[in-house]
Write a protein that binds this DNA or RNA. Structure first.
Lengths: 248, 248
DNA sequence: AGGAATTTGTGCGTATGTATG
DNA sequence: TCATACATACGCACAAATTCC
C-alpha cells in the first residue's frame, strides 16, 4: 500500500537504500495492491527509467529482482509482464509423477528433451554404486501438469542394463512403463536430497519461469525391488509453483 | 553430478553464445573438476576480466549466475568464494535434531527464544485437529550445529495438554525429553510440507544469515503414538547450509 | 587505533545485437 | 520494412565493507 496514483515515485538517494531496491518495492507494491494486474504489461524500461528518474540499467536491475521473486517475466520484443501462476505439486517416498498428477485431476505430460550416453562422473558412479569409469545413460526431461512445466530434470541410469530406454521413454511417455520393458516391475525412491537456490538463466528458461526464481533442487535415487540403484535424478521445481509433501 | 563437460577455454564472440555464459561454463567446469576447491577464493573481478579479456560487468554477470547456481558466494571487501558442502539433515518419521547433529560429529544446541499461549488460527486448529478457538502453546526456537544456526522455527501445541512444556523444554534443552514429562513416550512426524523462499530481514537475522538468503520452509506435523497431532512446526532452514535428506 | 589498499556493489552513459509485431 | 523493446557488452566513477599495514 504505497501512495496515491503516480506521484509517490520519488527515490531517496544516498540513504543507504539502493535505488534499484526502492524501485523493486514500488513495483512490488503496485502488483500487490492490484494496480498492476496479473498478466498486465509493465511500462517499457525507458518509460520506467523516466518515471523514476534513473538510468535504464537501474530499472533493469530492479526488474531482474522482480523476476527473481517470480513477480514479473520479461519477453524480448514484447515487454515485461506480471506473472500469475500458482500450482501445487505433492511428492512422496513412492513418487510416480503420472499417478500423482492424474489423481489430482490434472493432465500429466512429459518430454524427453535429450538423451545420450557418457562415462559417469565419480559422484554419479558412487551414488549408482557403479565402478569408476562405467557408462551411464543420461536423460534430460521436463514434466508438466496441464501444460505448465513442473519439473525439469537430468537422470543417470546404468548403461549396459538400460540401453535403449530412452526410445521406450519417448514412446510410452512414462518412465514406469519404460522400466517395465527392462524387467523393472517395481521401483522405489531410496533417498531424496533437497536444497533450494536461485534458478540459473538456462534452468529458468526450461521451466518457463522468470529468470532467477527460486527453485528447489531434488536429487533422488531410485532402486529396483532388489534394492539395486537404477536411476539418479536431479530435478528442479519452481518454489513458487510447488510445495513438496513428504510422508503420509 | 554436473558432469564431464569440457568447457571451451576460449571466449567465442558473436557466435550466438553470450560471453558471460561462456565464462559461467568455464568457471563451473573449474569448480566441478576441483581446480577450484570448496572454500577457495576466486581471482577478483578485475583479474577475471583481464583473464577473459572482457569488461568487469560481464564477469559480474557470470558470477551472479554462478551465485544463483549455488556454486560461489560473494562478499564485499573480501572476494568471491567457492561454496562449501551443505550439512545433510534427514527428514523422516523419526527426525530428532540432537541425534542427527551429534551423529554427524557436531555439537547440537538449541535455544528457546520465546513462548506464549494464544488462540489458534483456523489453519493451525485444522492441522492440529482442534476445535475453532482452542488455545495453543507457541514456542519459538533456534537450533544450531557447532554454534552455527541451522533451523529457526515456530511450534504450536495443544494447550490444555502441554501447559508448562516451555519450562521443561528450557530445562532439558530437548523437546523429546520435555514430551516425556507429558506422557508422550514416543512421537513421529506424520507429514512435512516443504517450500522455499527468500528470508525476511528478521528471519535472516535469527539465522545469522545475510539478508535475502534463501530459506527452505518446513511445515511438519508431529503425532503421538496414538496418531494424535501434538505439534505443528514451521521451521526455516538456510538453503545454503542445509541439505534435507528424505528416506533411508 | 586508524588510514590506506583491496574488493565487491551500485549507477550512469553509450553502443550494438536480436526477437517481436 | 520498420519501429519497438529487451539482451548483451564496454567504459567510467564512486560507495561500502573488509583487510592490511
Amino acid at each position: 500500500m504505497t501512495g496515491e496514483g503516480q506521484a509517490a515515485r520519488t527515490i531517496a538517494r544516498g540513504g543507504g537504500h539502493a535505488v534499484w531496491r526502492q524501485i523493486v518495492e514500488h513495483l512490488a507494491a503496485d502488483i500487490d495492491a492490484g494496480r498492476l494486474q496479473p498478466g498486465a504489461r509493465l511500462p517499457n524500461e525507458m518509460a520506467l527509467a523516466e518515471t523514476f528518474s534513473v538510468n535504464r540499467h537501474t530499472v533493469r536491475r530492479a526488474l531482474a529482482e522482480l523476476a527473481a521473486k517470480g513477480l514479473v517475466r520479461a519477453s524480448i520484443g514484447r515487454g515485461t509482464f506480471v506473472e500469475l501462476p500458482r500450482l501445487a505439486y505433492p511428492i512422496g517416498p513412492r513418487t510416480r509423477f503420472t499417478e500423482i498428477v492424474e489423481s489430482g485431476g490434472r493432465e500429466a505430460s512429459g518430454e524427453l528433451i535429450s538423451s545420450d550416453s557418457l562415462v559417469a562422473s565419480a559422484e554419479v558412479a558412487r551414488r549408482l554404486n557403479l565402478p569408476e569409469g562405467a557408462s551411464v545413460l543420461r536423460l534430460v526431461t521436463r514434466r508438466s501438469a496441464d501444460g505448465v512445466p513442473v519439473a525439469y530434470g537430468t537422470s543417470f541410469l546404468p548403461l549396459p542394463r538400460f540401453a535403449g530406454l530412452a526410445e521406450r521413454w519417448a514412446e510410452y511417455r512414462s518412465i514406469t512403463k519404460a522400466f517395465a520393458d527392462f524387467g523393472v516391475a517395481d521401483y522405489s525412491r531410496a533417498e531424496t536430497r533437497i536444497t533450494a537456490r536461485e534458478a540459473a538463466a538456462d534452468e529458468a528458461a526450461e521451466l518457463d519461469l522468470a529468470a532467477r526464481c527460486i527453485v528447489m533442487v531434488l536429487e533422488s535415487l531410485n532402486v529396483d525391488s532388489a534394492g539395486v540403484p537404477i536411476q539418479l535424478t536431479r530435478s528442479l521445481f519452481a518454489a513458487d509453483r510447488v510445495e513438496l509433501v513428504v510422508g503420509r
